[in-house]
């Protein structure tokens, strides 16, 4: 005789709609982790999310909690206003690297500097996924993209920006950590880190951001496994995984 017990399944904070992201896309993994954390913290009824402009603009189709869109790059200030109106709610914004590090650089810097007590999930996939894989401020030196056909040449395109290190200098910033989600171990670690970023908000610690090195297999022209190898290799060489700032 035997009995059966479900020990892992789709979190209830996800809707039944399958993700429409490409195969192996980092957005899918992070969406799932956020939903798992929302379940575990029991905050589905008190969390409000802000979706970016980018592939994850569709996040609101997949999370079964309140979500608003925001204009390209403006998610942190939309989140700021929501948090100020509802200080008791958990408010987060979710942004890609074009959204956060390019068009929305002023928004993230000032939100960080004001030390808004929100959580930011920053998806660094080193390109503009939605619009077809153009160069992002985060693209690596030499990276071939649809607008850097000969690779990122620093003379013409400048250097890749390490946003988390940049934000670390602001006193309003309490917690910054960079993670990857390339295998089960790193996914478990990433979940812990993202959970901490939400707990920080709930405990009133202040501005917390998690940068996730995420894959964009479709635009990298690689399969999901090769994409993860690229993150484990050259991407995490430039963007080192780990705690960048943690003010206790």
């Amino acid at each position: 005789m035997s009995t059966e017990k479900t020990i892992y399944k789709k979190p209830t904070s996800l809707t039944d709609r399958p993700f429409t992201y490409c195969w192996g896309c980092g957005h899918s993994t992070i969406h799932k982790l956020i939903a798992e954390i929302v379940d575990e913290l029991g905050i589905r009824e008190t969390i409000i999310g802000v979706a970016p402009v980018g592939c994850a603009v569709f996040a609101y189709d997949f999370w079964n909690f309140d979500v608003t869109e925001a204009a390209h790059g403006r998610a942190p200030v939309v989140a700021t206003a929501i948090k100020r109106v509802h200080p008791g709610k958990t408010v987060f914004c979710y942004q890609g690297d074009g959204d956060l590090a390019s068009i929305g650089m002023a928004e993230i810097i000032h939100t960080a500097n004001r030390g808004e007590n929100i959580t930011v999930i920053f998806i660094n996939n080193t390109n503009y996924g939605m619009t077809g894989g153009q160069l992002a401020p985060t693209s690596l030196i030499g990276q071939v993209t649809t607008t850097s056909p000969n690779g990122r040449d620093v003379k013409n395109y400048g250097y890749p920006i390490r946003v988390s290190e940049l934000l670390a200098q602001f006193e309003g910033v309490k917690y910054l950590e960079r993670v990857k989600v390339t295998d089960a171990v790193s996914v478990i670690k990433a979940k812990k880190v993202i959970k901490k970023a939400f707990m920080n908000q709930i405990n009133g610690v202040g501005f917390s951001m998690v940068e996730v090195l995420a894959s964009c297999p479709a635009n990298w022209r690689k399969d999901p496994i090769e994409s993860n190898e690229m993150i484990d290799g050259e991407i995490s060489k430039y963007y080192q995984v780990g705690v960048i700032k943690d003010v206790k």
Binding site: I48, V50, T68, A70, A71, R74, V77, V78, A79, T80, A81, I82, R84, V85, H86, A106, E107, H110
Partner: peptide, 24 residues
């Protein structure tokens, strides 16, 4: 109430977007 000196008009208008989306 909440007063925020926004750091640009892009920021102020999108803060208003957020605040009214939240019901204020």
């Amino acid at each position: 109430g909440t007063f925020i000196q926004a750091e640009s008009e892009l920021i102020s208008v999108n803060m208003v977007f957020g605040a009214v989306a939240a019901g204020a």
